[in-house]
Design a protein around this nucleic acid. Sequence first.
DNA 1: ATGAAAGCGCTAACAC
DNA 2: GTGTTAGCGCTTTCAT
Lengths: 380, 380
Amino acid sequence: MLESAIDIGLLSQFFSVQIHPKDMTYTQHQIVKRLGISRATLHRVLTDSPKVKTATRERVLKELDALNYVPNAIAQSLKTSKTQTLGIMGPATANASQIDKLTSIYVAARELGYSIIFAYSDGSPEADANSIRELKSRMVDGIIAFDRGLHANTQLYKSIIDNGKPLVTLYPTPGVETDCIYVDTRNAFKRVTKHLIDLGHKDIGLLITASKSNYIVNRELGFRDAMQKAKLPVNDNWIIYASPDGMNTINSDEEEAVAWKISDYQYGFWGASLLLAKRTRPTALVCFTDEAAIGALRAAQVAEVSIPDELAIVGYNDKEDAKFARVPLTTMHQPDELIGKKVLQTLVRRINGELTDSPVVEALSAKLIVRESCGAATTN
Amino acid sequence: MLESAIDIGLLSQFFSVQIHPKDMTYTQHQIVKRLGISRATLHRVLTDSPKVKTATRERVLKELDALNYVPNAIAQSLKTSKTQTLGIMGPATANASQIDKLTSIYVAARELGYSIIFAYSDGSPEADANSIRELKSRMVDGIIAFDRGLHANTQLYKSIIDNGKPLVTLYPTPGVETDCIYVDTRNAFKRVTKHLIDLGHKDIGLLITASKSNYIVNRELGFRDAMQKAKLPVNDNWIIYASPDGMNTINSDEEEAVAWKISDYQYGFWGASLLLAKRTRPTALVCFTDEAAIGALRAAQVAEVSIPDELAIVGYNDKEDAKFARVPLTTMHQPDELIGKKVLQTLVRRINGELTDSPVVEALSAKLIVRESCGAATTN
DNA sequence: ATGAAAGCGCTAACAC
DNA sequence: GTGTTAGCGCTTTCAT
């Protein structure tokens, strides 16, 4: 008795009992001393091993509960070389759809017993390198690349793979052979454009940004897919590549970084104003996000252009803002809630070696949501 | 030479050199063997200690760089009992203002060399307890409570403090003596209400939710402060406590949890519809967020009530959506970008023992942004 | 200016 | 069914 008291520190025990006995952090060593058993037995109880006498087990469990024992994950990690931790690297973002994706990752991680370290980066090469260093240093079991599909990321991702860490991306990245769970935005934009075509529109414009990212480029590709399939000409005059300086080009990684700091609303407003000022206008406009569409709605309001009568508008994302826009938006709904589940399932199986060598690449589909802005619905 | 090769594993060295020499993870032990120096000397170089011969230092630094050495933070943590890791506990959220706060915390943490573990919780007592367990287990150096000021959190926060972990909250929590950095929403709502009063409004309504959280309650208090100061009567008929079931009450923690799943837009739409249907209406309406105000804008549009002429509307948050609303919103701008800096500064100083015993409690002020929805501006 | 050695809390192989 | 022990990668006295 005296021995054990000395062992865990006479003074600290005194205080801990006196002040908040429930909230002291005990080590296995201390618990073992108290119970007069060995580390191994304790470990067996902790891991539900059958090789423990029931009486012993119960005595141990009771003590564990009384002491509110929480294992030290750091020590576990050091010993096992597994941290039960996943790293997310990417830019922070205020886009509601991105947030929902992120949340679904958090939820899924929690369910599978993984903690998440969010390695924030502003997208600059130095910040990205720092993020990787951070995650490597903390021995994360796997990494989720939460980005917008910039080509500049290729090298970065390769270095992660070379380091032997499982990596899941949310965009297929050319030249990077790794697991990828993504929403097929190209197909989504093809379908939302087709919806406009089916409604009888022939003169259709596209409002995107000048970014070279997959996030943007895929949307243009999908739009062109639909136009081509319908044998409709694409009027380049009606494709607006919005950019911060209004010059409609982005030529460097630095300019990309700056471009992402501007809101989709703003791009939508600028872009639509530009389009509406032209001598001839399309009868329909595909916007790269709902937020851009809301910006366009505002521009139309200022220009006194009636939506959808004079210009049909569609967006992409389908978060709450689309529903409550001045003209409720026709848009595509992404399965954001599903992504986290899929990503974690893939990543964890990869970590556990349950997957073959070839990368898992899974495309998820978006769903058309018809509201008033396209002119098809007249509810309300 | 042979010895060192054997020591770090003949096979693994072979492969690592062959496949990706740059990306192997080396331990201090391995590096020490290669260089023929001691752990201590390596450590001195790593920590910039002056007690190393310049020649030795350079030789070591060169090797470190060549091998791309990244220290194992897990081992460091175990040894020093400091993880350079901070935990954030709270619900995930799609509110743009919350996201900006969170981002500013990430940025500030990165600058100070701390990693962030986001311990997601849906707000239920079990999930909260799990979050605390997770953070305790991972030995975070401090915790940031990222919540909406629910009374149910009091016990939770007390248990963190009892455990001896520094805790910073973003709401003053009654009964919890800890550091707190917050935006004074009560004062903000007093001022935005006063703005309406100054514009000549006497009949002013308030649209909030039925939540008992500080997030909501402070807003009502601020509204009442302004009305009282101006000696204006508060018409309870014009205070809308929106709730999911339309019964305008929330009576339990469970109901609170459900209530937070519904968007502010939706509450704004429901609440304003309710208000506009009444026999008598106020001439101005204070909404609990910009998103609620946008929902109210939509309800007004449906009811063909002209904003701001028949009803002035103000919100709170001032993110991009406020600017591009059908009627650009008069609102209060929170210093979200500042919060991370302040929170981290406080938390890190607390961790380092640089603060006195008494809690740091700092209130930040919001700023009035006047646009069209209040009827004061007519810019376009 | 440099090195040897103990130990952070845990797991797991091995002994009894 | 239970106990002993080595060691994960690092920091840190204490010697030399």
